[in-house]
Design a protein around this nucleic acid. Structure first.
Lengths: 387, 387
DNA sequence: GATTAATTGTTCTGGTCTGCAACAAAATTG
DNA sequence: CAATTTTGTTGCAGACCAGAACAATTAATC
């Protein structure tokens, strides 16, 4: 939460801040009230994001499930629904499911809400602005204009999309465990493993958006064959399949709830599970140590199923990461579990749309509005929302 | 070389460009002449950097040698001298050597020159602005205020310093094989191995400047003990020591000119050398493939001694990199040898000072001058100099 | 309780940066 | 030589933002 003066610590002048906040207030994106104030002097106004001011229909697409939520500015989740569907699913399946789930959720929003758009998190390589899916290996999709399909079906103009790891990083950076950090790595682990990197406060996407495919760095030349065709990839050592194999869980029913089953066994004190988790954690740490050496982040956020198993993975992971990384980068880095947990990717998808909205608040390209972009760039919105 | 209109392709207006170029011309940093012009219409003025307008005393500090050069704006090398000194060398040794070599070089410059400062390339972790050396493992230095010592001894205010790999990246980006690229990795290999990364046109330094220590990523868990204390680091597989070991070169004299000796043997067709180089190249490729997956660069520049041996390393390196990297990032990436070769780090050291100079052309913090900063940010200087 | 000090919102002014449009200059084309 | 094309030059206007002065509102002090 930020009184307008603390907002001045963006380096901008009080008078400038006033204009910008006023502009955003006119658009219904923020509200100002007198906060509970202590200390002398005229009490400052506190600007808070108005969740109804901008709502995003956020979608997370996973191999065998889809999660849909309505998320308001500031990270407020109005409603969330998850459905499980057996793969393979076509783009048409996804669009019709989204229409079926999303429409009533939008109708259930407060009457004075303002729908900002749709944000989608996908494990794959996508074009952000319009949601063109280049490759989504887990879904078996190639070159699918999913954004266009959604936009057409739901009659919503702004449909944006990004890689789930990048969105996890964005979400934790704006609303989660990484607020205040400027150089962070978010580790997303489900079936595959990927990272989202924020470098100097900005997402690192690479030349074509493929950056962060760290799951396929070769970490163990004498390792197993990866589904990517290479040998010894990080994700073959630490991904869900490695966990299932090491834990000896092959029964399809148990496999369907792998993390739950592993957690239960671990809580029972199953020795084999601890061995398996130690192995996973240790390889996890090697990869993280490599990343710490390479990126020198101040923060590594552990997301995905690694987050759910964090208490069991923590020790071997940190041990191995410490072994691998040089002392200087290691000492300037903290490893911390995700704060947003399973909502991270959804919240990131919403933030993606919010960022676009705030960069261009009133329709298209009024240069009058660039002040608000500055404001967003300096993350006053995020700051003011962090309370 | 850029006529002012082509400079407009920085997105700025002709009138704006005019002002900025004029400002830089007043400062003596650029000259304008009518270039040889074809095509109809009024002939455009061509802005070229004026080398004498800003000269940097560039220094490269290596384990057993020091190179000093005077480099003018635009990358012109006026003079270059390299001396070989047996380690260990103290900061005082370095400063007195620099004074001895640098002073006559500065005196030999054109009378109308303008000395912009000193730029130093070091294998280690340093603070850029003032050249404080946190750690320089190869020199055995810890917490040495080298910048201050140089500044004091030579009576030069602006002394800047950076990691040699970061400077190699900067140099190739501005004046070498990476002009036009926005996401590149420069691989520096001597005794140690490090990378310099430019992400979206800006250097990636990490939270404390340690980013790029890729030489100490664990790439082979069953590998050898590294001098960093860990096992299986990339640089134990591909660094100079690995080369000497694999090539069976232990004789101290031959070892002193390792690269020359290896090159001679390779040209003789020595089969053992080819085996060694294939091994090095292959491990080199694994590491590069990992980096391509992680960063999705559009360019990887091979520098250091890998550049000198590039013809022999190229094939196994590219083969392994292709094996390791996913098809999408691999296909959007080119691997190319350094263009600046042994001058890369020196030119980078000069560019470091130029960048500071252009960001703040006339002394300290006249906001009137921020236009020139924009110009530099858009690398018009670099563009205009690329001819 | 009145005064003083401190802090912040508000308003106005002015400066800087930069794009736009109109015009002038200098080349090529026919 | 006229028409066309391209580019340099100039003046103007608008956006952005800082600074100063003032008003508002609270806490501290006597």
């Amino acid at each position: 939460m930020s009184r307008s003066d603390l907002a001045t610590q963006t380096g901008l002048n009080r008078s400038t801040i006033r204009d910008l906040i006023g502009e955003l207030a006119d658009l219904g994106l923020v509200t100002e009230d007198r906060g509970t104030n202590s200390g002398r002097g005229r009490p400052s106004l506190v600007a808070r994001p108005r969740p109804e001011g901008a709502v995003v229909l956020a979608v997370e697409l996973e191999v065998d499930s889809m999660t849909v939520a309505t998320i308001g500015l500031g990270g407020r989740i109005f409603e969330r629904v998850r459905i499980v569907q057996a793969p393979p699913r076509t783009p048409e399946d996804v669009v019709s499911d989204l229409e079926r789930l999303g429409t009533p959720m939008i109708e259930a929003l407060p009457v004075d809400h303002n729908l900002a758009g749709v944000g989608v998190a996908v494990a794959g390589v996508v074009r952000r602005q319009d949601g063109f899916v280049h490759v989504a290996p887990n879904l078996g999709w190639v070159n699918v204009p999913l954004g266009g399909l959604i936009s057409e079906a739901m009659k919503i103009d702004r449909v944006m999309m990004a890689n789930e790891a990048d969105l996890g990083a964005l979400a934790e950076y704006r609303r989660g465990a990484a607020i205040g950090s400027r150089h962070l790595i978010y580790l997303a682990g489900e079936v595959g493993v990927g990272i989202g990197v924020i470098n100097d406060g900005k997402p690192m996407l690479g030349t074509a958006g493929y950056a962060g495919e760290a799951g396929h760095t070769r970490i163990n030349p004498s390792g197993r064959l990866c589904r990517c065709g290479a040998t010894g990839c990080w994700e073959t050592e630490v991904g869900e399949e490695a966990l299932a194999r090491l834990a000896g869980i092959s029964d399809p029913e148990m496999r369907a709830d792998l993390i739950g089953e592993v957690t239960r066994r671990a809580h029972r004190g199953d020795a084999d599970i601890f061995t398996a988790l130690k192995e996973i954690g240790s390889w996890l740490g090697v990869g993280i140590g490599n990343l710490i050496n390479t990126f020198n982040p101040d923060l590594v956020i552990i997301g995905g199923f690694f987050n759910e198993l964090y208490p069991f993975l923590q020790e071997p992971m940190k041990g191995a990461a410490n072994d691998v990384s040089l002392s200087a980068p290691w000492e300037s880095c903290t490893i911390r579990p995700s704060k947003l947990g399973i909502d991270a990717h959804l919240i990131g998808a919403a933030e993606l749309v919010f960022a676009e909205l705030i960069a261009n608040p009133s329709g298209s390209g009024d240069s009058t509005e660039t002040g608000a972009a500055v404001l967003a760039g300096n993350s006053v919105i995020a700051v003011s929302a962090s309370a």
